[in-house]
Amino acid sequence: MFFKKKDSIIAAVFLLLLVNCEMIVDVDLPAYKPVLVVNSFFSPETEWIVRVNHSKAILDTSAIQPIENARVEISSGGMAWRLSRNFDGYYYSISALLPLTGKKYTVHVSAPGYESVSASSIVPAVVPIESIATRRFRKAFGADELEIAVNFTDPPEESNYYQLVLSSQEIMSIDAKYYEYESDDLVFRRGWGTVFTDDLFSGKSYSLKIRLRRWSITGTTLWVNLVSITPEYYKYFKSYHQFENQYENPFAEPVFVYNNITNGLGVFAGFNAAKQEIRVWPISYSGSIKLRSPRVSRFRKMPRNSF
């Protein structure tokens, strides 16, 4: 969209015109000691998976290696479980142990040559989808659109964080595809992706409306997932999107991606999804599907000629 990138377009034009030369410079970067990077999102429907690798100095071009000899431990309420390294070395897991709703979990990771790290998060309670209403309409540019209204009631007296995800299969299933959608809803903030808070409807019933293009849907059904997320998840996702938006702009202020790993980097955060499968229409379309991150645009419909 033109507006969204206006600053960067102008900046780019102006750089092309004027930047006359480049040269390699020595920058006095402080010495950097790599730390453990731990990434894990967990929910009651998935077994524990904790990825462990390491960070590296910015000018280091070597590949980041998984850490194979780490000790990874999950603990909760005085109980602790040690995770074992998966055969491909990329993550640590434990079978037959599923995270439980409402429980707080802590991860401890240590590995030779690195400072030990830890982090905690909980599995939030599901906020059920009460009903879903759909509506089809024809829009400009010849595209049919489907409007989906997701109705739910926000639990009172607490801050809740959500993500709305549309998928072709049940969420988290291996071959699920995730659909991009648009929304005018005020809960979404441009550039923050599909996460939102209950600031505008705390403790109340809410009807969240989104739209998606008909041709983008592959099957006859669609899964609507209202994911309850932890603040850690929310902050990480939001800041990552912001980081991605600003990344190539030399004039932009930097974005510090959220991190909740003590002494390390990464994120350890729980989520819990309410799911509902809906029938969309009988015709099956084929074609390639873009699996980009869901985009939220913020078009406001105003009365005609009110400009």
Binding site: R51, H54, Q163, N225, L265, S293
Partner: peptide, 18 residues
């Protein structure tokens, strides 16, 4: 100036998008 690089969450089952 960033001092370091690290990888974020990578998972085929992720609905985080990219």
């Amino acid at each position: 100036m960033p001092g370091a690089n690290y990888s974020g969450f990578i998972d085929n089952r992720s609905f985080l998008g990219e």
